[in-house]
Design a protein around this nucleic acid. Structure first.
Length: 281
DNA sequence: TCATCACCTGGAGA
DNA sequence: ATCTCCAGGTGAT
């Protein structure tokens, strides 16, 4: 078990898993579903909905996890370089919509799209003279038009988001059942939604539905595998990641990194993006 | 099954 | 300023 004081928020927020966080003076503020989380130094959590410990995964046995993933020497190096970097457990609906919006876009753009969604359809919360907007619920988005979504800058993702909202409201996608089921079934279930392929499904599973064996393979993580582990992940990784290659790669990944491969991925992603001086939020 | 290609948009770099 | 290029992919052909 752990206490929140071991978490490094700067690393954790700036590791590509969340988009709606801001540093305001000496505090961090972020949107998680209908909840506004404000973190003041030294790690005092203010949650409008009292769900913070859940969000920060304080129930994980982090010592055991970090020790396990550090058996890989590069991951071990990243764990030492970014002490306090953690996975978060996000609101599933927000995570689902966020990563559908991430398709072929940049972190900055994703953040802009989601912010506009919140301003347009979320609830306003005022906190210490600052104005925040929560992430709209599936019910709230039930009747939005593609046009509404286009006005938020979603582009070709607008139709995907609209369908994704319908899938939730109709009960075809039920996050809490997905959370309980096994990895492969949960992956296939999410992929029935248009706009969700392997990579985005893995992001949703890892960042909000407790599937720690998820290891989203995108242009960065694929590059990492080819660059640092050419012998282990060689043949499977070619230029375009087909369905089959993705599945084979994932098998090899779990084989090599272990059952907490998702944690490994978070450290490796942070390491390589920082190395290439890529911007975060 | 696989390789190509188009796709909205806005930020970053030339 | 103006332009081109590209960004944490995915679906259709």
């Amino acid at each position: 078990m752990q206490t929140s004081s071991t978490i490094n928020l700067n690393y954790t927020i700036n590791s590509g898993q969340v988009f709606l966080w801001d540093k305001i003076g000496d505090m961090w503020a972020g949107i998680n579903g209908d909840d506004l989380l404000v973190i003041k130094d030294p790690f005092q959590i203010i949650s409008s909905q009292k769900k913070a410990s859940h969000f920060f995964r304080l129930d994980d046995n982090i010592t055991k996890t970090l020790s396990a993933i550090s058996k890989d020497s590069l991951v071990g190096k990243a764990v030492r370089q970014f002490p306090g970097l953690r996975l978060l457990r996000q609101d599933p609906f927000q995570c689902y919509i966020s990563f559908i919006c991430s398709s072929n876009s940049s972190i900055r753009n994703i953040r802009n799209m989601l912010t506009r969604l919140c301003v347009k359809f979320g609830n306003k919360i005022e906190f210490e003279n600052h104005e925040f907007f929560t992430f709209p619920s599936a019910e709230k988005l039930a009747n939005v038009t593609t046009k509404d979504l286009l006005s938020c800058g979603l582009g070709f993702r607008a139709k995907y988001v609209r369908d994704a909202v319908k899938a939730v409201n109709s009960g075809r996608i039920e996050f809490e059942s997905i959370r309980k089921t096994d990895y492969k079934t949960s992956l296939e279930t999410l992929k029935t939604v248009k706009g969700i392929g392997n990579k985005i499904a893995d992001c949703i599973l890892l960042f909000s539905l407790d599937k720690l064996e998820s290891f989203p393979i995108d242009r960065w993580t694929n590059r990492i595998l080819q660059k640092y582990y050419p012998k282990i992940f060689d043949s499977a990784g070619g230029k375009s990641l087909t369905e089959k290659k993705y599945a084979i790669l994932h098998e090899k990944i779990v084989d090599h990194f272990g059952p907490y491969a998702g944690y490994s991925q978070q450290f490796l992603f942070k390491l390589e993006r920082d190395l290439n001086k890529k911007n975060w939020l």
